[in-house]
Amino acid sequence: MPASHFVAPAPDDVIQRRNMVDCQIRTVDVTDHAVIERFLEVPRDRFLPPELATFAYSDMPLKLASVGPQSEARQLLTPAVLARLIQSAAVKPSDKVLDVASGNGYSTAIFAGLAKEVVAVDADAIRADVIKTNLAAVGLGSVRVLTGPLTEGAGSDAPFDVIFINGAVESHLDQLFRQLRPGGRLVTILHGTEASGSGACSAVRYESQAGGISSLILFDAEAPVLSAFRKQAEFVF
């Protein structure tokens, strides 16, 4: 009689990650194998507070409460939007990535398996500590997490091949553009009429070229505007 082979069932979080990838990420034309594998590998629930962990693999918007005096509430990008944006950044294994306003460290962890080097920056020291703790919990404690104004990026670590902004922007990208190396890409969500002239928000990829910065609208996407990147109100007399 042949010996039987018992195959242990996959842990529940592994199954949920697979369902997230199959039902949310693959269905929006994310085909990059490395990106898909990274979303299968990184446990999103480890990057959420206990009250949100149950919803880690859903496609619903998840809000992170403010955690410190320089902090603001954040809404995490849905897995589908995040995956499409990261695929659009075309990260190579030799790249250096700046992850701006990571919020909880999840996007930083995704990039850490795609690029040679990743630096995360957040404006609030308490939130930066949360990011460090979350990254260490999944074995990524060596990733550098900085504290500073979001619009200033990480000039001492520049240039970067990819800069990723977790949230929507209206303005104040010039300093980040200067931190891109030639051919470098900045990927974010551009808010309202700044993106399309129609009031809709769009995912946008900027690229540093010899003649300046070019831009390409990628797809419709929604996210709250990060306060640091809000356009100043114009007074009309």
Rank of each mutant, 00 (worst) to 15 (best):
4 S>G: 15
8 A>L: 14
13 D>G: 08
14 V>D: 14
16 Q>F: 10
20 M>G: 06
27 T>G: 09
28 V>T: 10
29 D>E: 13
40 L>E: 15
41 E>Q: 13
41 E>S: 09
45 D>Q: 14
46 R>W: 11
52 L>H: 14
54 T>R: 14
55 F>M: 03
56 A>Q: 02
58 S>T: 14
61 P>C: 03
63 K>N: 12
65 A>N: 00
65 A>Y: 00
67 V>I: 07
69 P>D: 10
71 S>P: 08
78 T>N: 10
79 P>G: 04
80 A>N: 00
80 A>M: 05
87 Q>L: 01
87 Q>W: 06
88 S>N: 10
90 A>P: 11
93 P>E: 02
98 L>E: 13
98 L>S: 10
104 N>M: 01
105 G>V: 12
108 T>C: 08
108 T>L: 10
111 F>D: 05
113 G>C: 01
114 L>R: 11
115 A>H: 08
116 K>Q: 06
118 V>W: 03
124 D>M: 00
125 A>M: 05
126 I>P: 06
128 A>K: 09
129 D>W: 10
130 V>T: 03
130 V>Y: 00
136 A>N: 13
137 A>V: 01
138 V>H: 04
138 V>L: 00
140 L>E: 03
141 G>K: 06
146 L>G: 05
147 T>C: 04
148 G>C: 07
149 P>Y: 09
152 E>K: 08
158 A>K: 02
160 F>D: 06
161 D>Y: 07
162 V>D: 04
163 I>N: 04
165 I>M: 01
167 G>T: 04
171 S>T: 13
171 S>R: 11
182 P>A: 12
189 I>P: 08
192 G>Q: 06
192 G>S: 02
193 T>Y: 14
193 T>I: 11
195 A>I: 00
197 G>W: 08
197 G>K: 11
197 G>M: 08
198 S>I: 10
203 A>K: 05
204 V>A: 10
209 Q>W: 01
212 G>A: 13
213 I>R: 07
213 I>W: 09
213 I>S: 12
223 A>Q: 05
225 V>M: 07
227 S>M: 06
